[in-house]
Design a protein around this nucleic acid. Sequence first.
DNA 1: GTCTATAAGGTGATAGAC
DNA 2: GTCTATCACCTTATAGAC
Lengths: 195, 195
Amino acid sequence: MARTAGSHSDITGPRIRDAALSLFARHGFAAVSMRQIAGAVGVQAGALYNYTPDKQSLLFDLMQRHMDHLLQAWDDEPTPATPLARLEHFTRFHIRYHLDKPDEVFIAYMELRNLSPENFAAIETLRRRYEDHLEGILSQGVRAGAFQLADARITTMAVIAMLTGVNTWYRPGGRLSADEVATIYWDMVRRSVGA
Amino acid sequence: MARTAGSHSDITGPRIRDAALSLFARHGFAAVSMRQIAGAVGVQAGALYNYTPDKQSLLFDLMQRHMDHLLQAWDDEPTPATPLARLEHFTRFHIRYHLDKPDEVFIAYMELRNLSPENFAAIETLRRRYEDHLEGILSQGVRAGAFQLADARITTMAVIAMLTGVNTWYRPGGRLSADEVATIYWDMVRRSVGA
DNA sequence: GTCTATAAGGTGATAGAC
DNA sequence: GTCTATCACCTTATAGAC
């Protein structure tokens, strides 16, 4: 059945995104050609332009979907009662979600410079919205006397960098499970905010 | 004087590296052509091949110099007496050094996937050597009873990710000086290792 | 919706003149 | 050491047949 001519719009679109995601993550946006993406999907390069106006839009689409999905996933999470419980929940959610989508995460911050200025601004807005969820938890905790920290914004950036860094070294099947890793990181986060 | 024909080997080499560093950092290795680098230096593309056998070697040269220089700079630093003082020294050194060389730092971990397998292995060895300096400080501190942490290797990766993350948001002339930022981060590092 | 063919231009790298 | 010219190939994107 492979390569049969005809209409496949409902499955070809997702397949193009999957192939582009994987290839961009492995080789980088600029190093991957439309022909390579088409080859991975099993169509000719011209057919891709039925699904994206150009290569830039394909990249933006991947990043925007990733950020939208991340924000939605966090909105769907429950909200524990105390700042301490909320911070632990965020820590474990962030590690779990990011380890689950390594290609999306990798692209979302490695390929920012390949976005057009307008597309860059749009992704930065979504990223800032996600960071603000953590900053809100930290600020609430400071007001409630649960945390002691010098600057909620800087602590936000520090914690997110620390947590996202798990993706650079964690490999499934290694010395520790994802849950064990999350517990160790939660211990560090908890102490670093003075809780 | 610009573009005069003749012999300039001692100044053209560094100028090529400077131009490549800046262009790779801004646009990415794959998105920059040898003609662009030559244009920034003020020579024709063919002249670059008197200084590098190919584009890949140019990238590797930049990364290797960066890692060599980082390791040498750390070796040149004094060694404070206690684990706590050593950890503070490493924290401040890492932030200062990395804020000082943002292009080198950016390339050194954004362009790893564009290295050939042999070159990648060489850079990873140097990176691991740098990480091991921090891991050594943490392990010593645990043995001396100065730190309480679950896993020296994971704490090493977490602390380095947190500290290097400063480069993603810090801009000179902003709300806080580099020294003030380093002090806030040192407070977080100190608490996260249970000191 | 996918194909083939093509336009218009860029790519890394080399040869040989000066 | 740098230049010009060139090779062989790849690039994104589009046009028109089916």
